[in-house]
């Protein structure tokens, strides 16, 4: 079993974008397991990671079904190379210190919570069902990361500085969340996908409110990094996949 290339049908690509976001971020969060700042938070981060991996699985299964090539969730997750991955750059960024992890989670969840809520009304029944479940999970991820961000921002001078640095560092990856290309535009017109621009006001409102309470400065919207959704990733993704896909690559075709 060698590297595979997923079908380029828009619906397949859309499912993969959502699935890859969830899996890559879930994978990143799982790296914290056993190493978090306190035991309670170790368990909380694992819960979020499990939610995200749980969101990815039915999305991969759906992509595989749409493809009709006899693939399954594991073939799509474990046998595509980095250039075939469709996640946004934000989710593959390294965990850094706890502030980076929390800011990354917050920026993502502030987008995904309304995203899933609205996608629950998709004309595509599978997306709608997956979204209806993910909506509640994302709402909690937002709440958890926002409360932490407020504590880090308005905690000690050190935590404030770390939180601000994390925000400044990750801000350039937020623009990509709101992009829609030709693949998505057709789906948006058919009422299957969601126009991310419609989420902008709510995202801005959430971010401003939480940053305000956290006494953090919203960075200016300068140059935004992009490319993840078309397979042009940062260097980090290759290492994630080298870890994740190791067994499937070293023992091709085995059952685990």
């Amino acid at each position: 079993m060698t590297t595979i290339i997923a079908a380029d049908a828009p619906l397949v690509q859309y499912a993969l974008r959502l699935a890859d976001n969830a899996l890559v971020l879930g994978h990143r969060l799982s790296e914290w397991c056993g190493h978090a700042p306190m035991l309670e938070e170790d368990i909380a981060l694992a819960n979020i990671a499990l939610d995200l991996i749980g969101q990815a699985r039915p999305l991969y299964a759906y992509a595989a079904e749409l493809e009709g090539e006899g693939r399954n969730e594991d073939k799509l997750a474990y046998l595509r190379d980095a250039s075939q991955y469709r996640n946004v750059l934000l989710v593959e960024q390294p965990n850094g210190d706890f502030a980076v992890t929390i800011v990354r989670q917050f920026l993502y969840a502030a987008f995904m919570a309304p995203f899933w809520r609205l996608l629950a009304g998709s004309r595509d029944a599978t997306f709608a069902a997956i979204a209806a479940k993910a909506e509640k999970e994302a709402a909690y991820h937002l709440r958890h990361s926002a409360e932490w961000l407020i504590r880090l921002g308005d905690g000690t001078p050190e935590s404030h500085a770390r939180a601000q640095a994390a925000l400044d560092e990750l801000w350039m990856y937020t623009g990509e969340l709101f992009e829609a290309d030709a693949i998505e535009r057709g789906l948006i017109e058919r009422g299957v996908a969601l126009d991310p621009q419609t989420l902008r006001p709510e995202w801005d409102e959430t971010v401003d409110r939480v940053l305000g309470e956290a006494t953090l400065k919203r960075p200016p919207d300068g140059w935004m990094q992009t490319g993840g959704r078309t397979g042009r990733h940062s260097e980090h993704l290759g290492f994630i996949l080298a870890d994740m896909q190791f067994l499937q690559r070293a023992y091709p075709g085995a059952t685990w």
Partner: peptide, 19 residues
């Protein structure tokens, strides 16, 4: 469980004891 304030205690209780 241990938590610095009531909101974090509530969230930790959810995460630890209702899995």
């Amino acid at each position: 469980l241990h938590a610095a304030d009531s909101e974090m205690a509530l969230q930790a209780a959810r995460d630890v004891y209702t899995r």
